[in-house]
Design a protein around this nucleic acid. Structure first.
Lengths: 319, 319
DNA sequence: CTGAAAGCGCTAACAC
DNA sequence: GTGTTAGCGCTTTCAG
């Protein structure tokens, strides 16, 4: 019954007899009829959703990012959310599952390098904060600039021996942060002391444990400032350091990357580079809509912004 | 080609000739063939996703909840995420959009009362932290207990004049928190001074603004402790109160509901009732899977737990 | 063990 | 203007 179809979608340009139309509308509301979206998409070839893959849903960074995406797509598409099972970053299997959803587009937030290497594009796709030579739309996050900003800040405060708590070496975004920071510190005649990533999972406890594990080495190296790859790790570092009796920033400066909203509220307020989660989501969605509509791929860049707060201070006079 | 279908899904119990099977598998990988999930769901009548509607994705409470849901459903279903556009709680339109997704099940996290009133069930559904007389599965969050716990704690500390910062009066979960708290305070001979909800949107700034607005009245009423309906509002209260020179908890005790992970880290660490976001998600998903498999509805209850931290203390000697 | 054929619920093109 | 018909891409049934 094509009339039903037309009426339901309000696509009858006055073509349907008013009486028939009214009868159809009554039946629709009586039966609480809802069209089957599978059948609809099957024939129209226009999927009504996009898939978004994020490494974690507990990290507020991705909450902010999703908010940005949602804001742009509005009611045009619905979101299929894919998150790896706890304690693991996502592999190609999750990406393939997301592609199987039969979607108009796909957003991959900071995919691990190995995942990206085995990725094959099946629909308009936007990759966030990861590099690939493929012809895929990307939102580049200028983490090199972020590392430089943080490095300059610490160097200006007099720090020369800086500890670094890494995270997930499989992601270029993290190694770039470290390298850019290290370059600035070394250029000033200092050294960056890298501590290995805690685990694959990012939470406050991991930061605490990593600090306990690495502090002896850092202390031996005369470290006066520590940078973490992510705010959440920095929270753990500050918590444990304070428990161990160190005052921040007098005894030890702490800084990191992301600037989730809570970083302004922890004690002391955390100096961190705002990685613009919301802006990233906004851009990703815009580029994706563009890729869907015009079948072009594009790359754009988002610049981070340093937020200086109370967790970093001048290096105290030598020991 | 039925053989293809069987091979792709690994459902050929040795029925397919090895040679043919190999040829099919080669073709599948050569063409990077992916079955169309719409067509598949259309015929199998088994949708592969569930919809989850949350009021906000920026509030880590719902991130934790989603993590719980994801953990239980594993790869069995994929999640369609529905979030209202910024600054608004969700109406029935969003719920209907979610139902249109053609899903195996639906989870409604703390729906506003008006939304719930016009809700009609179209598939197995679980309602989180909201009451309805309908025959729908629910996860009850014992917010009355939460209010009592917090009330007893404050009363024991000597507080009798307590300020309350409400949020979204349209939700029973918030009015229950207030009433339960108020009952305990009044029973001890005290009074609860309610400040109206800040706005429909929950963020730190709203908490700050609300505190600025309400403090004159609270001060006049001799308030020595303030409870916020949500941790995030409490962060704003503490921030502004400290900016205004008050020390917490000496001058003013602050407490709230939720216990998102950051509440242990703000300064001072926030006393709050853990509303068990993760557990809520776990239970919701379990109940939903059950509802999908066995077509029964059930109701279960999650009990909150008070976390006493440094933001609450004894009432100072009277003015 | 394999291929042909029907049909899931919808939309679009087409006769009536 | 309105009803009929042919698929969308898959799974399942049923002959060969």
């Amino acid at each position: 019954m094509s009339a039903v179809s037309l009426v339901v979608r309000n696509r009858d340009g006055g073509r349907i007899n008013g009486d028939l139309k009214a009868r159809i509308q009554k039946a629709v509301s009586d039966l609480d009829y809802r069209p089957n979206s599978f059948a609809r998409s099957l024939v129209s070839q226009l999927p009504s959703s996009i898939s978004v893959v994020v490494p974690s849903i507990r990290n507020p960074f991705f909450g902010e990012m999703l908010e940005g995406i949602l804001q742009v797509i509005g009611t045009r598409f619905t979101i299929q959310l894919h998150v790896p099972s706890e304690d693991m970053d996502y592999g190609i299997d999750i990406v393939r599952a997301a592609q199987e959803d039969n979607i108009a587009g796909l957003i991959l937030a900071t995919p691990p390098q190995t995942t990206l290497d085995s990725f094959r594009q099946t629909c308009p796709t936007v990759i966030l904060d990861a590099y690939t030579a493929m012809d895929v739309s990307r939102i580049e996050l200028n983490v090199v600039l972020a590392g430089h900003q943080l490095g300059r800040h610490l160097v200006e405060l007099g720090h020369r021996s800086v500890g670094y708590l890494d995270f997930l070496p499989d992601k270029a975004t993290f190694s770039c942060r470290r390298e850019a920071l290290g370059a600035v510190v070394r250029q000033a005649g200092g050294a960056l002391h890298n501590a290995p990533a805690p685990a694959e999972y990012l939470d406050i406890e991991q930061g605490e444990a990593a600090f306990s594990r690495s502090w002896p080495l850092w202390e031996a190296a005369g470290v006066t400032a520590i940078v973490a790859a992510d705010d959440i790790l920095a929270y753990g570092i500050m918590k444990r350091a304070q428990e161990m009796g160190m005052t921040i920033p007098d005894r030890l400066s702490v800084a990191s990357f992301n600037d989730i909203p809570f970083s302004a509220l922890v004690s002391p307020a955390l100096t961190t580079v705002d990685l613009r989660a919301h802006e990233l989501g906004l851009q990703a969605a815009r580029v994706l809509l563009d890729a869907i509509a015009r079948e072009v791929s594009s790359v754009c860049t988002v610049d981070p912004e340093l937020r200086v707060r109370r967790s970093t201070g001048s290096r105290r006079a030598g020991p």
